[in-house]
């Protein structure tokens, strides 16, 4: 018992170190956004500004291109998330519960993309979407990534764990498979849907290479594209760049804080272990 206070202190220090190193870059980005043009590059460096000046934040929020990029990326991410949840959970249910011809072959087909890195097909996917006339549209950002072997697999693992008795009762009462899916499985899917949905939203919001390949029209610029271009074109306005970067990450931080309970426990329902 003698070493208990010491152990507690050590734990406390360790927690502090971990938390600070995890949060430091984000905090610094947010704080640097409050610094003036010369202050942000001042040597010797200072962590906090002399005067907290919101000019950078006001200026970037007053930039219609930034606001438009945030809005259009948000809209795209919402549509993308809803479509992926639909497409992947339909397939997940069919593979978890239904019995049908060619099931094994179709399963192999749907799971194969798990082993295909995006860059292996980057160029030919580009050819496909340009032949389909999808370049410079929201569709090119949304549609190609909707079907996801990983998400389907994740949701299926969860469905396999739902007890059969629930649907047997319903089916004896004459419910169709579709009714079983919408009335029994969907209401139970909240936890996996949050985990998978947040992952979809993140993937869409943070995508960079695909948007810069397929989008030329400034009206459709995605937020990462905006930040990347800003870095290239006005790279020395660091205060402004930090403010914009922080604001671009803010929606995701908020989403994670809202759904933190589901996310940090998400790996447990994945059936990974």
């Amino acid at each position: 018992m003698r070493r208990r206070p010491l152990a507690r202190l050590a734990t406390f220090v360790f927690v502090l170190i971990v938390a600070v190193s995890a949060l430091l870059p984000v905090a610094w980005m947010a704080i640097a956004g409050f610094k003036g043009k010369t202050e942000v590059l001042a040597t010797p460096f200072q962590f906090f500004p002399e005067i907290w000046n919101p000019d950078n934040y006001l200026q970037i929020l007053g930039d219609p291109v930034f606001v438009q990029a945030m809005t259009i990326t948000f809209v795209g991410a919402v549509i993308f998330t809803i479509l992926s949840l639909g497409v992947n959970s339909f397939a997940a249910y069919a593979f978890a519960r239904l019995d049908f011809r060619f099931k094994r072959a179709l399963w192999a087909f749907c799971i194969l993309p798990l082993f295909i890195p995006a860059f292996a097909i980057l160029m030919t996917s580009f050819v496909v979407v340009s032949n389909l006339g999808m370049l410079d549209s929201l569709a090119v950002l949304i549609i190609p990534g909707v079907a996801s072997a990983f998400q389907m697999f994740f949701i299926r693992q969860f469905y396999l764990g739902i007890p059969l008795v629930l649907e047997e009762a319903a089916m004896i009462d004459g419910a169709s498979r579709w009714t079983v899916f919408t009335r029994i499985f969907l209401p139970l899917s909240r936890a996996p849907f949050v985990v998978v949905g947040v992952a979809s939203f993140l993937a869409y919001w943070n995508a960079y290479v695909w948007p810069i390949l397929t989008i030329q029209n400034p009206d459709l610029f995605q937020i990462q594209q905006y930040i990347g271009n800003f870095r290239q074109e006005r790279g020395n306005e660091w205060g402004l760049l930090m403010a914009g970067s922080f604001l671009s990450a803010l929606p995701l931080i908020v989403i994670v804080l809202i759904f933190q309970r589901y996310i940090v426990n998400g790996v447990r329902i994945s059936g990974l272990k």
């Binding site: 927690v15 971990v18 938390a19 995890a22 949060l23 870059p25 984000v26 980005m29 993140l202 919001w205 943070n206 960079y208 990462q224 930040i227 990347g228 870095r231 970067s245 671009s248 990450a249 995701l252 931080i253 989403i255 994670v256 804080l257 933190q260 996310i263 940090v264």
Partner: peptide, 15 residues
């Protein structure tokens, strides 16, 4: 600590 350590995960490669 779980939420804190997860938070950097949401930051994009670009940012």
């Amino acid at each position: 600590l779980k939420t804190t350590i997860y938070l950097p995960t949401v930051v994009s490669g670009v940012v």
